[in-house]
Design a protein around this nucleic acid. Sequence first.
DNA 1: TCTGGGGTCCTAGGACCC
DNA 2: TCTGGGGTCCTAGGACCC
Length: 425
Amino acid sequence: MQPINKRIIALVDCNSFYVSCERLFRPDLAKRPVVVLSNNDGCIISRSTEAKQVGIKMGEPYFKAKPLINKYKVAVFSSNYELYGDLSRRVMKILKNFSSDIEFYSIDEAFLDLTHITMESVEDYISKIRKTILQWTGIPVSIGAANTKTLAKVANHIAKKKKMGIEEFISKDQNYIDKELKEFPVAEVWGIGRQLSAFFHNNHFHNTYQLKNADNYWVRKNSSVVVLKTIHELQGTCCFPLNCTPTVRKNCCVSRSFGTSITDMYDLQEALVNHCITAAERIRSEGLIAKTIYVFIKTSRFKKNYLSRVEKIDIPMPTNNTLELVDLAIKALERIYSKGHYYSKAGVLLSGLQPRADYTNNLFSDLNRNLDHLMNIIDQTNNKFGRGSITLAAARHNNQFKLRRQHSSKIDTSFIQRAPVVKAG
DNA sequence: TCTGGGGTCCTAGGACCC
DNA sequence: TCTGGGGTCCTAGGACCC
């Protein structure tokens, strides 16, 4: 029996999003291979189709990919999150016009509930979405539509290979979908990563159609409940509903690798203070307070004598106050620091987050009121005059920690001073 | 020389309690 | 002193996602 009112879910995914953002201001790169690098110009995190075709792999370290990059004259960009964030907001804003039920899944992806569209008009509708985004922002997207998120993901993968950039399973019969699933590698299913695909491969599941028909009991016994849900989703039963109201996050982590490794505790302290300031600002902007703070430092895991240390401190009175958090972070660092190691990364994780408004004040809460007020003033000032206009002395800026960012386009479409200049005539 | 950063959820195992 | 069963909570580690 067919369930009544089967959902129609579309997945809109921006093609090679970071690369597409950079290309907006570099039309000369439209047909050339392009890659975007992670922080510190470390790894390749976005590739144009042409870059994929010449064999550059996702996540590959930049220095390892350099021979190919030179050989094929690949254009290289450092990541520019101000630009990507702004373009993402523009794309999402357009999507809201097409459905009010929308889950913003990542910087370049969103699930839309299109149940209000008739089955017959789904193809036209998603095609219209695609054209509108391309016309209004210049960003190419692929769209897949199906009854469940997992199938919409499959459809999206197929859409990526089609010229029109769309694929829908809504008006198609089961034979059509099964035929596509037989061609679809298990490793590409949403929720099946490296370990699980190896596991299924070893157990003779070679395509997604076979996975879809796997024995439930066997799967539950030998794998996890998440995989079982994934299989139900492949069969067309919704197990991962759309999450349209953003939930309060549970953690906030700020960490960076250093441009060059450091040994001195006060250098580590300076980096951690900066991360702590960022993390505190972030949770304040979301109206949250933290119950626990973790501080971690580590040496390079690619070198000998890898060292990774973490210290957890439970905060007696949950807070989002920079001064208190920085104080705790410094204490934590003093406990875990040991001399003579070359540290390559440090970070702060604020955990047990809860809305400030939900927290019941106690006898000592009044003590914090002045500090809260101070934080408000600092946040307002920094919003108005730019980040870091007011900061802590302990966050003094040392160039040593500056990220390597040698290939940045430096364009920021949300900040007029950094908009590109066009000269006429 | 050079190897990102930020999330979520599940599971197993230990501590503790009745 | 030893023993059983059942429950909760926490944590670390693993797997996944983008």
